[in-house]
């Protein structure tokens, strides 16, 4: 049995008459890169804020390392690093001073440790520059340097790539993987970007309208009853005509490949149909991305 690092039980938060989060039960295991998915406004940030004690839950509890996060706050948060939404730092202090101040809130930090953390995230040359001169991406990297510096067992990141360009997103993703691989850190990563979670997470949970819809291994959840396929055929125009003529086949898109949606178990029938009509089928691939899955279970949330 894997060791559970983070567990929420019946976690709920009500603002006025509205439930922002309702009865959320999460389980994050040691070593996980846990993707916490949901459309904007699903309640991800509220959940994270409750986990990190920024918000008081209306009901329910949060246990990290087996301890109640509110009752054993010091002990628990000494082993946790959180990056909540924007990577905000003291803009009037240098990167070095920020890490010194924030690191010392957890434990005594040596100068070498700060320099080393800045080197890992590629900010060593900017150590003495004030954070107000940093780009958004540099601040995100500084946030990760903070995580490296305090050597936490659990890093909780809320939308870490939000507002970054593709290069910045890749850098952050790589740093997340570095934290997990090289430092053995458990990562709890919230995002509304499906590709981000898909590319790094091994387990995930999906939240929608404040309620937990599903959680489990990414591979298990995506295995399911695949009904989307990509077909590489020649000649493509003729194949499209044949497929279109069948009312039980939905053509999703036509580009280099033809993407179709069919009922489960009819893939062989499609393949046979193409072959008997002298269409050369060079590939026939089951396709179920996290995006398909996510859209299905959140009933097509519009802001994805």
């Amino acid at each position: 049995m894997p060791e559970t690092i983070l567990r929420t039980e019946g976690l709920s938060k009500k603002f006025g008459q509205r439930w922002a989060v309702k009865d959320v039960n999460l389980e994050v295991n040691k070593g996980d890169i846990f993707g916490f998915l949901g459309p904007n406004g699903a309640g991800k940030s509220t959940t994270i804020r409750m986990i990190l004690t920024l918000l008081t839950p209306t009901s329910g509890s949060v246990r990290i390392f087996g301890k109640d996060v509110r009752r054993d706050r010091h002990e628990v948060l000494s082993r946790v690093c959180g990056i909540v939404e924007k990577p905000d730092f003291y803009i009037y202090l240098s990167a070095y001073r920020n890490l010194e101040v924030l690191g010392n809130l957890s434990r005594k930090i040596a100068k070498d440790e700060i320099v080393s953390a800045l080197e890992i995230v590629g900010l060593a040359s900017r150590a003495n520059d004030k954070v107000k001169t940093f780009s958004h991406g540099m601040k995100q990297r500084l946030g990760i340097a903070q995580a490296i510096l305090t050597k936490p067992d659990l890093v909780i990141m809320d939308e870490p790539t939000s507002g970054l360009d593709p290069q910045g997103m890749k850098e952050v993703r790589d740093l997340v993987l570095t934290l997990s691989r090289d430092h053995g850190t458990t990562i709890f990563l919230s995002s509304h970007l499906l590709t981000e979670v898909h590319s790094v997470a091994n387990r995930m949970a999906v939240l929608n309208h404040g309620e937990l819809i599903v959680q489990g291994k990414v591979s298990d959840l995506l295995k399911g009853d695949s009904s989307y396929y990509s077909i590489n055929v020649s000649p493509q125009d003729r194949a499209v005509e044949i497929l279109k003529a069948q009312p039980w086949i939905e053509i999703v898109s036509v580009a280099n490949e033809i993407d179709i949606h069919i009922d489960s178990g009819r893939a062989a029938e499609v393949n046979r149909l193409l072959v008997v009509n002298d269409i050369e089928v060079s590939s026939f691939t089951a396709k179920r991305t996290l995006e398909d899955y996510f859209l299905k279970i959140t009933e097509g949330a519009s802001d994805l």
């Binding site: 990190l52 004690t53 920024l54 706050r73 010091h74 002990e75 948060l77 000494s78 946790v80 959180g82 909540v84 939404e85 924007k86 905000d88 730092f89 003291y90 803009i91 924030l102 809130l105 957890s106």
Partner: peptide
């Protein structure tokens, strides 16, 4: 206002 309060309050000190 600057968001650093979040940063501060998720550290170990009460």
């Amino acid at each position: 206002a600057s968001g650093t309060l979040r940063l501060l309050l998720i550290r170990p000190p009460s």
